[in-house]
């Protein structure tokens, strides 16, 4: 069973790799180095902060872009172009197929994260600064955020078309980042019904804001370990829930 998941994951990874997506990643890596070099000429005493800020921002953009744009086509394109028929007409279960496809794309996310975070570390060290432990938590959270978005867009792509899947997922991503702050504004707190609706949304839909700790890394603030562990568990549990949902829908879906 596992060897079939591995085979599908391996060739999915290879297919994406050959589609020159990683050229884009390397280009972003170069952009990080260039922007830090330029910033170090204009900013006095803070090029390190620029390196971290731009680096983590571009890493986030790149990971979320891969999740959104490759994730939306992960299954829909397979069904549309009938490539899926060549695979599941073999002794392969639908669960093996979906796990293989997702693992292949997760592999691409890991490579993307490794390349760009290495660039950031390299630039920071070259500038004579030290990397704090929170930076690595931030990298992990960035990966969890892109994983969550990948699963959200995959789930949407099973029930609607690619354009709507992308739009819905993007809206959830934006809303998921601002939901906590929105709940505290006076416009909401003065309206109990709206407050309840947002509270419900907060508990049910993915809280992407929980996986964003860039500000803490930038300003060298510390975060309690149990907070970091709890948020990691949140990201992983939500991903597991979405994975089960995707498998449930995909197992019952008519592939026509």
């Amino acid at each position: 069973m596992n060897s079939k998941i591995y085979t599908i994951a391996y060739y999915t990874f290879k297919e994406v790799l050959k589609s020159k997506v990683l050229y884009g990643v390397l280009f972003i890596g170069l952009a990080i180095m260039l922007s830090v070099f330029v910033a170090s000429e204009f900013t006095y005493g803070a090029p390190f902060r620029v390196a971290i800020d731009v680096g983590l921002g571009l890493l986030s953009l790149s990971s979320l872009g891969i999740s959104l744009f490759l994730g939306v086509n992960l299954l829909s394109k397979e069904i549309e172009s009938r490539t899926i028929y060549m695979i599941i007409s073999r002794p392969v279960t639908r669960i093996q197929f979906i796990l293989g496809k997702l693992l292949g794309l997760i592999g691409v996310l890991i490579v993307n994260t490794l390349i760009l975070s290495t660039m950031i570390v390299l630039v920071t060290v070259l500038l004579g600064n030290q990397i704090e432990g929170l930076f690595f938590w931030s990298i992990l959270f960035n990966f969890l955020e892109s994983l969550l978005l990948l699963l959200v867009v995959t789930a949407f792509s099973l029930v609607t078309n690619t354009v709507l899947s992308s739009v819905f997922s993007f809206v959830l991503l934006i809303a998921g980042h601002f939901i906590a702050d929105t709940q505290n504004i006076m416009f909401v707190t003065s309206r109990p019904l709206l407050s309840e609706v947002l509270k419900f949304y907060h508990y049910v839909l993915p809280g992407f804001y929980k996986l964003n700790i860039k500000d803490y890394v930038l300003y060298k603030q510390t975060l309690p370990t149990d907070f970091l562990i709890m948020n990691t568990v949140y990201g992983l549990s939500y991903s597991a829930f979405l994975l089960f949902l995707i498998i449930y829908i995909f197992n019952r879906k008519n592939l026509d």
Binding site: K14, E15, M86, S89
Partner: peptide
């Protein structure tokens, strides 16, 4: 063994 109609395979493999 199954061959679908108008197959379109992974273009980069």
């Amino acid at each position: 063994g199954f061959l679908p109609e108008r197959p379109y395979f992974y273009p980069n493999l």
